[in-house]
Design a protein around this nucleic acid. Structure first.
Lengths: 348, 348
DNA sequence: TTTTGGCACTCTTAAAAGGAGATTGCTAAA
DNA sequence: TTTAGCAATCTCCTTTTAAGAGTGCCAAAA
């Protein structure tokens, strides 16, 4: 579907129509475009153009005597070709920087705040996904016995993140044996990504002096320790922004959305995989494979925390102010990368 | 407001009315009560009784020609006096036990699952609040340097829970100095509750050989390390159940609810403090101080994890099947306590 | 004294009817 | 190629109408 052969007039009409529809959520008639946007043409001429645009599938009529609204293809063309990015105000930039650069707070807190500020500035649903721990390179592993039969496994990766998992053992293990395990694990596993370790751990521990029982323990716990599927680190903020849109007038639809957001896992997976690659990624309406957000668009971008990356973005109705939102998501992702990969991330 | 002087007939009428209203969500007329509940009285007689009940403020009329609906006081009387608990089915018991007793999964995961099963069995919003870490007695504290300028603080309390906080230092501290700090901190702080430590930490560390700079670090970080306000450990599941109730027909109301649930902090505080004490606690409608749930009832109970306690419960419209829900929440809290305080919790 | 049947009255809700308003597509003229 | 004009179409809002449910009260019955 390439629409390069659109006349300049058709482009202008489409642009004005979408711009207007984004503001009002009402079907746009030929008269509005002719008058409000001073195109120097009569409504009748606009009407002819609109008919052409409709035949191309870029706009459609809800019913005979209504104006036109953009289709998903219309938005796609708008975003790909017609869009001019709108710069952020100084105030907005400052808000984002403040949130992103609050030192010493821990990444989870920063991401929660980032989701919040995204939601507030954009008036959409803001979201963030924590760095994909699995891609982190193991720096050090510690075993801390916390009580009989329970040991805390600390996994520290490069770029300064760490995670802890409480592991339960059937029987007690003496302290010095713990030391030994710790040493062996560090020797064998450090320097590899957690994902890699998960896949290869059983071979890596095969020829050690450790008791087979212990090895089995770490191999079995592999998915919990070495990947991050366990915690749902998708943070969404501003669901009410989305709900109050006319697109969600139907309660059934709200319910479906809420279920999706509550589940987190599925949505996190979807957003994560769709956002692979550089720069801003936009999925519009039906392009989204999840039926619950088929009337929404998703604007996301990757950010980097050292050598691990995560995703932030927003979800709103397809009728969203793309030009502004894209700038905001882009700027926020960049700031976040700068803050998380900054001085201390660089060094290793 | 005591209603002990209600006649037995009035009680029966009220009981039947509420029972019926809970099922249908429609105002209940005298005819329905007379016929469906076979009270052996004519509708006209029931009408007289209903008038009395209305004067007492136990039921009310939405408008002149409608039946009656219970008021909050009506529900209160129903719950306090009229209620017969409905036992759980064997299947329900099994479902709960299965969730609660899945070993080795970590308390967060168990609580998430508990919220879920509560929501599913009750068809309401299920919730759980993690144990109030602050009340835990410090068992051991570990400092693990994870990268330059970052150290992971592990706080382990009795009954086998542990938490980790990433702390940032301005400058580097050599490994042996860490050991020293660790030793001193353990000597001075173990055996006290975290809440107590938070309040007294500066005195406790006053006369040590540690550098004042380091002490300051731990004192400043006190709220983050020693209390648990930081993480929002309120888990809510099944929001869609609530949203689809006729009580939430208004989108504005849904929006307010969602905001409340998203915020977590405020709600967590509210539920936590309201649930102090033994057994099931029920707040009905306007009894709730939070305006967002003034048309809801909240049924909660404390559970114990060793010597620390937390809360679970459900939120639903005031028109909820109390007799069943109370049993379910009670049973779940008991099971949870048994699972978390079981064999390994007992020992210390 | 308590209960009941009867009945006028009130109010909601759903359906039907009517009309205003918006916008289109088409045709013929500019 | 553009525009003015106009009939046709469809939504949406308001009003009307009718049906239905339930009450309150009174007078008669138990």
């Amino acid at each position: 579907m390439a629409f390069e052969n659109l006349s300049s007039r058709e482009k202008r009409v489409l642009q004005n129509l979408i711009t207007h529809y984004i503001q009002t959520a009402d079907p746009v008639g030929s008269r509005v475009i002719a008058n409000k946007y001073r195109m120097g043409l009569s409504p009748a001429t606009i009407r002819n153009t609109m008919q052409d645009l409709e035949e191309l599938g870029l706009i459609s009529q809800p019913h005979t005597s209504a104006g036109r609204i953009p289709t998903d293809s219309g938005y796609r063309f708008f975003v790909d070709v017609l869009l001019k990015q709108e710069p952020l105000t100084e105030h907005e930039k400052r808000q984002i920087e403040t949130i992103v650069h609050q030192g010493g707070k821990g990444i989870d807190s920063i991401l929660a705040q980032t989701s919040k500020i995204l939601s507030e500035i954009t008036s959409q649903l803001g979201l963030s996904i924590s760095p994909r721990f699995e891609e982190g390179v193991l720096r050090k592993l510690n075993l801390i016995p916390v009580s009989e039969g329970k040991v805390l496994v600390i996994v520290a990766v490069k770029s300064g993140f760490a995670r802890s998992i409480l592991m339960e053992l059937e029987s007690d293990i003496p302290d010095d044996e713990f030391r030994e395990i710790e040493t062996v694990l560090n020797e064998r596993l450090c320097g590899h990504t957690l994902g890699h370790i998960r896949k290869t751990i059983s071979e890596r521990l095969a020829d050690t002096t450790l008791s087979p029982r212990l090895i089995k323990l770490f191999v079995d716990a592999s998915s919990e320790i070495w990947s991050d599927n366990a915690d749902d680190k998708l943070i969404t903020v501003g669901t009410d922004n989305l709900i109050m849109q006319p697109e969600f007038a139907d309660r059934e639809r709200i319910s479906e959305l809420i279920k999706l957001l509550e589940n987190k896992k599925e949505l996190k997976e979807y957003i994560s995989t769709k956002s692979i690659g550089e720069g801003i990624i936009i999925t519009i309406g039906e392009e989204n494979t999840m039926s619950q957000i088929k009337n929404c668009s998703v604007v996301t971008s990757r950010y980097k925390a050292g050598n691990i990356d995560g995703t932030i973005g927003i979800i709103g109705p397809t009728r969203m102010p793309y030009s502004k939102l894209i700038s905001i998501v882009e700027y926020t992702a960049r700031s976040l990368t700068a803050a998380l990969t900054g001085p201390q991330g660089e060094e290793e």
